[in-house]
Design a binder for these strands. Structure first.
Lengths: 232, 232
DNA sequence: CGGCCAATTGAGTGCTCTCAAGGCGAGTGG
DNA sequence: CCACTCGCCTTGAGAGCACTCAATTGGCCG
């Protein structure tokens, strides 16, 4: 991976490496537009809805939850961002959602303004950005189906299978999922209450589909059954 | 609005007008990549999930519903597409959702392949496409909040206010909304059942917020109250 | 008029929520 | 080392909102 290090290359008038700009977005080859990496503590906010949006962020380590609030405090978590994910990319003038660390994290801020310049110079990057947006869009639509049309059991099964696939691509412990988020977070992601999430996990444990050695560790005992539940 | 008429300019090797390509996406200045307009009857499918995706479509007249199915037949309607909207743009190799006309419609097909060529020649268009994707993304996320966290009454109120705003921008009858879709369609968009949608509309009528001269016409009598309900 | 489809309305059920109590683990201080 | 606190999780009991099933109405068209 090409890396301009901790310089904010374009913002400082530096040159951009074409190969870097045209690389896969997820592999962070946006380096020409990035600024210095930043450490953030758990439970801090990276930004809040309606804040002016000058940067978006690539998660390097840790985890975020990206959420929206209704005026009376009801919360919906739009996504959990893991290393490699972008948060705040969808912003226009202002952020349209809030991002909070759920773990101590490292992020790489990317200025929208310098991104524009990079895109102007390297059209290939624009295609990558469109591709990224399409993927995020596809995920959001899948999530809509899940939230709108699945039962609590199916929702939790869907959640676990997706998390299992994501963790598998990060580390290599098939069937073991480390829950970085609380029951309440999961509930706000699936459109449930924390009690229903807890009950559903207990139910899955009783029926032998999963094991819960600790409340934050899920061991998937029957992946086939879990996927059956998730896909219907 | 610039228009190359019914020619498929780039696909046929024609020249592209730069001003047209850099114009606002919603105003259909994608003409350089478009093919001849196509008429389609109500209840026909433009494409189905998993079909190979060669084109996406700009709706010129009529209306579409864009939906996904679960294996057992449960349906979720991701969006209703009206004139000016794009359907199928989010596809990768294959379509990841289905599009069905709910009215006799006219669409303008746009080939992904020729789009790529146009984007390569006119980088400004790429920015527009990213902007479009961002907007669609923002809508999907708002819809997630609605579906996951609002009550039936709030969902229907949200739906009506959004539809009222959209129709207002099309024609000029503030407070009068023509429902192009059935109760069942609305239900599948909001994550409800058709009976609940019907009951909720009746309830709104009884409380004087709306009137229902016909089942497909909604007259909004108290927009403030409706927006209160919608925003929670 | 009769047939058909969509919408409405009612009755009863049930899934998920609300409210509440109790448990568990980590961290802290005496 | 233990008692205490605090946050999070689990579990139970009961309630309610939306669902299911079913009957009826209304509009449209042949």
């Amino acid at each position: 991976m090409l890396d301009f290090g901790k310089s904010c290359a374009l913002a400082q008038g530096g040159n951009c490496n074409a190969a870097g700009c045209a690389g896969a977005l997820k592999q962070a080859n946006l380096t020409a537009a990035t600024c210095a990496s930043k450490q953030v503590a758990a439970h801090e906010h990276q930004f809040r809805e309606f804040d002016e949006a000058t940067h978006f962020y690539e998660v390097q380590e840790g985890a975020f939850c990206v959420y929206k609030l209704l005026p009376d405090g009801r919360r919906y978590i739009v996504s959990f961002a893991m290393p490699g994910d972008l948060v705040g990319f969808g912003a226009d003038e202002n952020h349209n959602l809030s991002a909070e660390e759920i773990r101590e994290s490292t992020v790489r801020p990317i200025a929208f303004r310098s991104l524009e310049q990079v895109v102007a110079s390297y059209p290939g990057l624009a295609t990558k950005l469109i591709h990224h947006a399409k993927q995020e869009l596809a995920e959001a639509k899948d999530q809509l189906v899940t939230v709108a049309r699945k039962t609590a059991l199916e929702k939790v099964a869907t959640f676990l299978t997706r998390l299992a696939k994501r963790s598998r691509s990060i580390r290599d412990e098939p069937g073991v999922v480390n829950l970085l988020m609380t029951r309440s977070d999961i509930a706000d992601f699936l459109g449930l209450t924390l009690e229903t999430v807890s009950r559903t996990l207990s139910r899955m444990k009783r029926s032998g589909i999963i094991d819960l050695p600790q409340s934050t560790w899920v061991v998937i005992r029957d992946m086939d059954e879990l996927e059956m539940l998730a896909e219907v």
